[in-house]
Write a protein that binds this DNA or RNA. Sequence first.
DNA 1: TGTCACGAAACTGGATCCAAGCCGAGTGAT
DNA 2: ATCACTCGGCTTGGATCCAGTTTCGTGACA
Lengths: 246, 246
Amino acid sequence: MPGLSTKADEVARILEDEIVSGAIPQGQVLRQEHVCERFGVSRTPVREALQRLEALGLVTALPNRGARVRSISTAELREAFLIRAELEALATSQAAPRMTAEDLARLDAAEERFAELTLDLRRQMRSGDLRDSSLVVGWMGANHAFHDVIYEIAALPRVEQLAKSARRSFIGEHVWNARGELDELFARNDMQHRAIREALAAGSAEGARVLAREHVLSSGRLMEAALDLAAAKTRPPDWLPSEQPI
Amino acid sequence: MPGLSTKADEVARILEDEIVSGAIPQGQVLRQEHVCERFGVSRTPVREALQRLEALGLVTALPNRGARVRSISTAELREAFLIRAELEALATSQAAPRMTAEDLARLDAAEERFAELTLDLRRQMRSGDLRDSSLVVGWMGANHAFHDVIYEIAALPRVEQLAKSARRSFIGEHVWNARGELDELFARNDMQHRAIREALAAGSAEGARVLAREHVLSSGRLMEAALDLAAAKTRPPDWLPSEQPI
DNA sequence: TGTCACGAAACTGGATCCAAGCCGAGTGAT
DNA sequence: ATCACTCGGCTTGGATCCAGTTTCGTGACA
């Protein structure tokens, strides 16, 4: 059989992708029985998968009352960006004195691919609006790939894990709501990546640290502004009862 | 029955305490069946508990081969201190502009209690050696309590959670091996806490950030030195096969 | 005597069965 | 008419059962 891993792993991985990509909306309640018949497994691995998602912070589970996909507030999103900024700064500063020529080449390759996708996406946005969110997801992947090279060089596996977890806070609707500000983000990210690259090439740990930190923080500020804007447009009147928090 | 929580929660909480305190040594293999009969429950909640511990990073689970309590290397311990330094710095800088008079009073109370325990412990260490590790555990708790006040003021729940997780890397044997350096640590921690307190009282976010960061980093350096020393004393000859890494 | 192969025991992962808790509808009392 | 209580369905948590896999021990053969 496809013994690559356990069934609980498979289920958890797929559900995670669907939650992060927004295919499963925030606030959705996940019934064990329902997930069971969808994946053709029994409830045992489904329960394990849901627990793993809870550990990742993607769902909240209340005893005897099931699991619900977390609604990530703008406050939590802001905190996630703050955390990521510090962790990226740490990893980048640690990577600076370890850079080899080969590392630099890999970083350049990742940055080049990111720049390509950025150009594609900007063209796409100018010509029509952005109906296909998979393009954005792909672009975000290339963005992450650049930073992943740095993580690998820094050799701080736990930092890498935590930062990737923080990335997952920016999911689903957030991406869609922030799409209006993406064009601005594109140009800035590209420049900032190149600046970080230069600092790393120069072996300046402190320079790389400051640049990486500011890079993430500025992205966070932009996203926050975009989400506030989107919320102002689409928020229901204040007198309507808001979605009850589980 | 005491329906305050599920049995899996109970088992996980107890096992976590025992691993962190060192009652269950690193490298120990946890057999599901064995844990079952010890707690008088079936294997289902035990499996959930072990999975939760794996998510916390306290055990590693190998497919079809059980769960083993992680051996935390000095490299991982060093990384944990680096992470905690950044997170503490972040939380402390965020807390600085939010301090109220009441907050400051709570901080002083926590620091006072910490100073008391520190004095007790130093006396104890001078008079005889430190046979009872529970004193050290209590002292560490008071140390953490000081920082917990800051976390609460900073209102960054995720940062708090991650930092507490990083604390758990310093467990069991580490504490015991580092006991020789505790006296040195005591005096420094007290001074550094007071310095952080003053920066917070002055509302200096950047000052508090730098002090908090240096506070954790200096503790990390001291622990690292102590552990290297302990390892040099007790390490088996290099030609003996070391404990196989699971 | 050393090595390899076969087999049994034991352990984990998955499925199914049972009990206990939450929620809502319906009914009766005030 | 409204509030409170109870009863029943539905869902989750826990226990037990079954299958697949790993490991260890024993025995046979080179």
